[in-house]
Structures are given as C-alpha cells and as structure tokens.
C-alpha cells in the first residue's frame, strides 16, 4: 500500500507510462527497442527449455517404454541400458526425419519459398492463443506471413523480432482467414472460436455444407496461398441474425503435437510493397 507521496507519485508515473505505451502500441505490429532487448534475454531460455523438452519426451517415449518390455533380461541390464539410450536417440531422430519428410513434401506443393522453424514457446498468459518460433527478421520473416504444417494451416506471424516470432494460431479470435468449402466452393471467413475449434462465418444460407466437408484457404485475403487445408466441418448452424450459415470447424493441424512449422515467405498481398508506393497511390 503506498504510504508516502513519493510512492503515490511512483504509482501514478507508472500508470501514465503504461497508458502511453498501451495507446502507442495498439496500432502496430512492430517490435521496439524494449521488445528486442527482452527477446534477446529470453531466447536462450526458450531454446534450453525446448532442448530439455525434447530430451524428456525422447526418454519417455523410448527409454521408459523399453524398460517395461525388457524386464526379463535382468542379467543384460547394463548392456541393455546403453543400447536403449542409443535406441532412444535413434528413435527420436527417426521421428524427426519422419516429420521433416512431410515438410519436404509440403514444400514441393507450395509455390512460394518457405522456411522451417521450431516451436520454442507458448503464450505466457493463456488468454492469447499464440506460439513462439525460433525464426525472425534475420531469417526474412515479417508480420502476416502464413504458417503451416503438413496437416494444414497453423496461423500467421504477428509480432516479429530479430531471432524469434510470435504466431497467432487460427483458433485465436484475432486471426481470420478467407476460406472455402472444398466440395461446394462456398466462401466464408474463418475465425478462432475456442481452444480447439474455429467458426466459418458468413456462409450463404443456401450452401449445402455437410459435416465432414473440407475447409481450404481461398487465397483471397492476400495472406494465405490458395488451396491449403484448414480443417473439417464439425457442425452447421444458422448465424445470430439468421442471414448466414455458420460452420464449426475442427482444425486439421494438432496444435498440441506440433514441434516444427513451415513459414511461407510471402508478403501480404503476394508482392513486395516498395517504399513510396502508398504515396504514389
């Protein structure tokens, strides 16, 4: 509890500073000096937790599992342990290869250049559905670039700093994608709905959408390339005013399992905006 005038003054000063920072940051996605410095401090921490995470998972999936299977070979325990450790490493590498092979396949499908990135962190507050990847401005990433995995669209880059970027997942209400129903070609806008579902809004009332229909990107929002799988329709309902249909969509990508993602290096609108172009317009 502030007791002296100095303490009250400090609180008021911080409130004023906070309001200035808040209102100046509302309209832009760029990182400033403070963000850059902070990101430089936390990046090694993220990388180390990512490393520990992989080690724990590798041991859990391989080593501990194999311990249960080889109980009868007590006499060969020491030798087995060494082999299991080797096996654990190889299994982890095999899994990684399998995942990366999918990305190679995906890269050949995409017309645009793309960059592989690792997921190193998640939203710290829990309110915003975002993840942090280990690629940033230095790697050619800028805000509003599509992020995909082999199973489908993950989201888009939001705030980008030198060595890391924040990716808004498609389940976050602030991320929207112009999408189509693959079978009927009906268009709608897909927005985040809950932690594991999206809602496809503004579908034509006469659209014959059914459960199980594939939802793909339309390519008309200037961010996501055309034809990428987003999810599968789970249910259909009439919108709040009864003018449009709404479909609840289950994202095809598993956000809990993803470790590597592919950032499609395409600028918003599909072309590079030259300096001064806005003024000419």
């Amino acid at each position: 509890m502030p007791r002296s005038a100095r303490e009250i003054g400090l609180v008021l000063l911080l409130i004023g500073l906070g309001l200035i920072i808040l209102f100046s940051s509302l309209s832009k996605n760029e990182t400033g000096f403070f963000s850059e410095t902070f990101n430089k401090i936390v990046e090694p921490l993220y990388s180390s937790t990512f490393f520990i995470n992989n080690k724990i998972k590798g041991l859990f999936h391989s080593y501990l599992f194999l311990v249960g299977l080889n109980k009868e070979n007590q006499l060969l325990k020491e030798e087995n342990s060494r082999l299991r450790m080797e096996n654990a490493t190889l299994l982890e590498k095999a899994n990684e290869n399998e995942r990366l092979r999918k990305f190679v396949g995906l890269k050949t499908i995409l017309d645009h250049p793309s960059l592989l990135a690792q997921v190193i962190g998640m939203d710290a507050s829990g309110v915003y559905r975002t993840v942090i990847i280990n690629r940033g401005l230095d790697d050619g990433i800028s805000p509003n670039m599509p992020v995909v995995v082999a199973e489908g669209v993950i989201g888009k880059t939001l705030v980008v700093s030198e060595g890391m970027s924040q990716v808004g997942l498609i389940t976050d209400p602030s991320v929207s994608i112009d999408s189509r129903i693959d079978r009927t070609r009906d268009r709608g806008v897909l927005v985040g709905y809950s932690s594991n579902a999206c809602v496809l809004k503004y579908l034509n009332r006469k659209a014959s959408v059914i459960k199980g229909d594939r939802v793909i990107t339309s390519g008309l929002d200037g961010i996501f390339p055309k034809g990428l799988l987003v999810g599968i329709v789970e249910s259909i309902q009439l919108g709040p005013q009864g003018l449009f249909l709404e479909a609840i969509v289950q994202p095809s990508a598993n956000f809990y399992e993803m470790e590597e993602v592919l950032v499609v290096l395409v600028k918003q609108g599909g072309f590079h905006i030259e300096p001064g172009l806005d003024a000419k317009k």
Binding site: G18, I21, F23, S35, N39, D123, Y128
Partner: peptide, 19 residues
C-alpha cells in the same frame, strides 16, 4: 510488460493490470 511481449497482448495492458 514482459508478459505482454510474450503473449500477443497490446504492449502495456498486462503491465498496467499487474500494477
């Protein structure tokens, strides 16, 4: 402010709330 940077919240919002 650090949480703002790590979460996607407008910079300053969580800072003010925590204050």
């Amino acid at each position: 402010l650090c949480l703002d940077m790590m979460s996607g919240a407008p910079l300053g919002l969580i800072g003010l709330l925590y204050l």
